[in-house]
């Protein structure tokens, strides 16, 4: 989780995360493929065939199950280098107000920088009342001029928050990019268990910019059912009315019934609930229909795929200081594992 969280992997530049995942898959002895867009696919479970693609089901009538987690995270991209060496930025999935006074790293060499903000002394009283806009911000890498900056960075370099992973207190983990490195971590953990049916682990790219990796990966995998592992919004803090709190930290993995991009398969939801109740695993329903995840593209693949999502609640999501609960992580793993056992025992969507 630490390596995954601290790796840089803004949408379109997931290489660092992919290398960690490929290493882990190698350690698990699972052959992996990387497709044209950069998705990683590994066949686990029943291992007689080495391919990640193929027709629905197998000779024994066992279903092909796709598990998906996305590797990319929200972040920034350098759009212009000013004469004085300051970097203008574009963003993916970030509230502009999260940006000021943050440490970032730029490009594959992880050049360090900070996002500056006009000091409070020099601001108009009116300025202080307004939220800062991205266009008024810049990344400062300590360069003295454009030429100086261009020795270390270039336009088109990605930037991500610099934020170290840490355990806080007994039960909380803090870091960046838990959306969706926590899904990646749960998925890698699931792969340590053996299953007697074709299980295709998919680590997707470009979820944050439109579920793009999942669109092509699900075409390749051509599954009979799919389960998306996510980090999802959690706003259980003061200032959010109870009915607007999508999930609660420590309340267990969240099951989506409907979001902006998909309605979960009712039979899979039932299967997940049954699996949770059989094993006494706590779970919660995501109480918001906002947002969307890779399920939005996977369930529409080819002639349709029954799909559901299991999510770990992430406080302060899409920021450098997100927080998850160790228990939610553990229970997400237990729930996915219990569900896969029920597939083993004959569950079909």
């Amino acid at each position: 989780m630490r390596r995954l969280s601290e790796a840089a992997g803004v949408s379109g530049d997931e290489g660092e995360v992919r290398r960690i995942i490929l290493d882990e898959l190698d350690r698990l002895g699972l052959p992996a493929e990387v497709d044209v867009l950069g998705n990683v696919m590994a066949r686990a479970g029943e291992r007689r065939e080495g391919h990640t693609s193929g027709g629905a089901g197998d000779v024994a009538g066992r279903p092909r199950v796709m598990l998906a987690a996305h590797m990319d995270e929200v972040g920034m991209i350098v759009t212009y280098i000013e004469k004085d060496g300051l970097l203008r930025l574009g963003t993916v999935g970030i509230d502009d107000r999260v940006l000021p006074a943050k440490e970032v790293t730029v490009g594959r060499d992880r050049v360090r920088g900070v996002i500056g903000l006009k000091p409070i002394h020099l601001q108009d009283p009116d300025d202080r009342k307004k939220a800062v806009k991205r266009n008024d911000l810049f990344i400062d890498i300590g360069a003295r001029s454009r030429e100086d900056a261009e020795k270390r960075v270039k336009v088109g370099d990605y930037a991500c928050f610099k934020s170290s992973f840490a355990k806080i207190g007994e039960k909380a983990l803090k870091g960046k990019a838990f959306d969706d490195r926590v899904g990646c971590a749960v998925l890698l953990r699931v792969l340590e268990d053996a299953h007697e049916f074709p299980l295709i682990a998919t680590f997707t790219v470009q979820e944050e910019v439109g579920l793009r990796g999942a669109a092509v990966a699900s075409w390749t995998v051509d599954p009979d059912m799919a389960l998306v592992l996510e980090g999802t919004i959690c706003s259980d803090t003061p200032g959010t009315e109870e009915h607007m709190q999508a999930t609660r930290l420590g309340g267990g993995p969240a099951l989506s019934i409907m979001d902006g991009r998909s309605i979960s398969s009712k039979t899979m939801l039932r299967g997940l609930i049954d699996a949770a109740e059989r094993r006494g695993i706590p779970y919660q329903f995501k109480r918001s229909t906002m947002g969307g995840n890779d399920a939005g593209r996977i369930h529409l693949s080819r002639a349709g795929v029954p799909t559901a999502s299991v999510s770990v609640p992430c406080r302060y999501i899409h920021s450098p200081a997100s927080m998850i609960s160790v228990d939610d992580f553990e229970n997400a793993y237990r729930l996915v594992s219990a569900f896969l056992d029920s597939v083993e025992e004959g569950f079909r969507p």
Binding site: M258, R261, S262, I263, H299, L300, S301, R302, A303, G304
Partner: peptide
């Protein structure tokens, strides 16, 4: 699921 994005039509047309 037409009202939420013509989703059923997407998959049935493929099939």
């Amino acid at each position: 699921q037409e009202e939420v994005g013509a989703r059923g039509a997407t998959t049935s047309a493929y099939g």
